[in-house]
Amino acid sequence: MSPDILLKIWGATLDTLYMVAAAGLIGSLIGGPIGIFLATSGKGELFPAPMTNRIVGLIVNAARSTPFIILVVAIIPFTRLLTGTSIGTKAAIVPLTIATIPFVARLVEAAIREIDKGLIEAARAMGATPMQIVFKVLLAEARPALTMALTMTAVSLIGYSAMVGAVGGGGLGDLGIRYGYQRFMPDVMLVVVIVLIVLVQIVQSAGDGLARRFDRRSRKN
């Protein structure tokens, strides 16, 4: 394998990391609060708004059920509007972020719904405001589950980022398609896959480790 190709693989890896980090960060910052809202706005919950909850839930479901590759193409005008282009790494961040938002929202919702309702009642009995309950009880108690959720998000994003390669998105997927597939360079394809596997392993192990550190539920010291 030529040094030129190796350099390209290195560059593509950085591109992938950049896309995953950017989409993961922005997507979580928007999807997280939506998830909290979904978990706390049902009838009789902390911020009761059952109608809005329904509508947001529907939108999230719609976004979740749109195949990613179709989402990428469908929002090209929006992507152009934001980034001025529809190809390349920067442009790929837009659909990746859009796909991350509902994904994170549902995971965060599930993580928060896992929390024992008794804790919310106890906090209410202490005179906590709904916001204090969210920050001091829900987010604190859900930290291990939230860490796992963000790990899952990052892993899924690595997969999605490879998919945007199919439409000129840049990164490892793009490299794999253009060199490995279109130029019949199976060795490049192999390296790309191995790099992706290693990336996923690192992210997953780091996430698991963090989640374990945060989890105080049943660990004997």
């Binding site: 008794g118 804790l119 009642e121 604190a140 539920r217």
Partner: peptide, 11 residues
């Protein structure tokens, strides 16, 4: 207030 299942924060 105290509770049957204590309702302590595990974190």
């Amino acid at each position: 207030m105290i509770f049957q299942h204590f309702n302590l924060l595990s974190s």
